[in-house]
Structure formats: C-alpha cells, structure tokens
Simulated scan of single mutants.
Amino acid sequence: MTSPQLWNLPNVLTMLRIVLVPFFIWFMLEDASSYGPWRWTAVVAFVVAIYTDKLDGDIARKRGQVTDFGKIADPIADKLLIGSALILLSALNELPWWITILMLVREVGITALRFVVIRYGVIPASRGGKLKTVLQTLAIFLFILPLKGLIPWLGTAAFYVMLVALAVTLVTGVDYIVHAIRMRSLARAARR
C-alpha cells in the first residue's frame, strides 16, 4: 500500500506536470509551426505546467510536505517539459539544434553527476540553477508564442533570451561539477 504522504498536493501537481508533457508535445506537433489554435493550446499547456512547478514547490515547503518522491519527480518533470520543448522547437526548425544539444547534454550530464556523487551528499539546486530554469522557461515561452507575425521583434528577443539561458546553463553546469569535485574530496578527506 502506498504511503499517504506520497499523495499530497505538491506531488499531485508534479504528476500533473508530467501528464501535461505529452499533451504539450501533441499540440505543438498538430500546429506544425502554423501558429494557429493548436499553438495557443500548446502555450496554455506549457504555462499551466510551468505554474505547477512553482506552485508545488511553494506548497511543499509551506506545508512541510517535501517527500523523497517529490525530490526525484520534480526535477524529472522539469527536464521532461523543458527538454521536449527544446527538441520540438529544433525539430520544427524554430531553434538551432546546437542550442538544444548543448542544453540537453548539460542537463543529462548534471543529473548523472548528481547520482554519481549522491553517496557523498546531495547537490542542491543553486541560485544559478534556478535562474537557468527561469531563463529557459522564458525563452521557450517567447519561442512558442504565436505572435511573431504581429510582433516582428519577438523572434529576435526569444533568440537572445535563449542565448543568455544557454550561457547560464553552461556556467552553472561547470559550477555543479566544481561543487561535486569539492564534495567528493571533502568526503574522502573526512574518511582518512
């Protein structure tokens, strides 16, 4: 039987975000860069999913409902949403593949690094990591908004925000690697 603590509001919101990902993908593919009603539906799905990310964390901390499931599922849900959005934008020729690849390599690499060093401790999300998520989210939102015909500079703004997001993504990736090396060294020194 599942622990009642698992079925709290923050975890349900995290699961909702995971469930929204295939719908977001479907809406984006149905639109196929025509910037019609399906694209607006994709925007709504993305905004709702991103809002659940903020909401679940706020509720979990406020109510003391942080669970091991939430600690694992929340970042997975984030990576599924952000990763699928990046891949879709590149597949639809709206975002260069090199940006998507660099971001995904960093995300997968840091996630793997966290699992490798978990025996020495948990690498918490840094302020830079949180800024990275905000910038990635903003850039994706600007890219998927179907207003480029009405606001010609929107595409350029989206691209520049994405470049800033990429820079922060790479810099924080290096920071996490340095943090992991230090944590491992300290743990080994403590055992001597």
Rank of each mutant, 00 (worst) to 15 (best):
S3E: 10
Q5M: 11
Q5K: 15
L6K: 12
L6I: 12
L6C: 05
N8M: 11
P10S: 10
V12S: 12
L13Y: 06
L13G: 13
M15F: 14
L16Q: 04
L16G: 08
V19G: 13
V19Q: 06
V21P: 08
F23A: 11
F24N: 13
I25R: 01
I25G: 03
F27P: 06
F27Q: 13
F27W: 11
F27I: 00
M28Y: 05
M28P: 14
S33I: 00
S34C: 02
S34A: 02
Y35T: 05
P37F: 09
W38R: 04
W40E: 03
W40A: 05
T41G: 08
A42P: 09
A42T: 06
A45D: 01
A45N: 07
V48K: 09
A49G: 11
A49Y: 11
I50P: 01
I50H: 00
Y51P: 00
Y51E: 07
T52R: 09
T52A: 05
T52I: 01
K54Q: 02
L55F: 04
I59N: 06
A60Q: 00
A60L: 01
A60D: 03
A60F: 02
R61S: 00
R61I: 01
K62D: 01
K62W: 00
R63C: 02
R63W: 05
D68L: 10
G70L: 06
G70M: 11
K71I: 12
A73Q: 03
D74K: 07
P75Q: 00
P75A: 00
D78F: 05
G83D: 06
S84Y: 00
A85G: 07
I87Y: 09
L88S: 10
L88T: 10
L88N: 13
L89V: 13
A91M: 12
A91R: 14
L92G: 08
L95Q: 15
L95S: 14
L95G: 12
W97Y: 11
W98V: 06
W98D: 15
W98P: 04
T100C: 14
M103Y: 05
L104I: 14
V105W: 02
E107G: 04
G109H: 15
I110W: 07
V117K: 03
R119N: 13
R119T: 10
G121R: 10
G121H: 03
P124R: 10
S126V: 04
R127A: 05
R127C: 01
R127W: 14
K130W: 02
K130M: 11
L131Q: 07
K132Q: 02
T137E: 03
L142P: 08
L142N: 04
I144P: 15
I144A: 14
L145C: 08
L150M: 12
L150T: 09
I151F: 15
I151T: 15
P152M: 03
P152W: 01
L154H: 15
G155N: 07
T156G: 07
A158H: 02
Y160I: 14
M162C: 14
L163I: 09
L166R: 02
L166V: 12
V168E: 08
L170C: 11
V171D: 00
T172W: 08
D175A: 15
D175G: 02
Y176E: 09
Y176I: 06
H179V: 10
I181G: 11
R182T: 10
R182Q: 12
R182Y: 03
R184L: 08
L186E: 12
L186G: 08
A189I: 06
R191S: 15
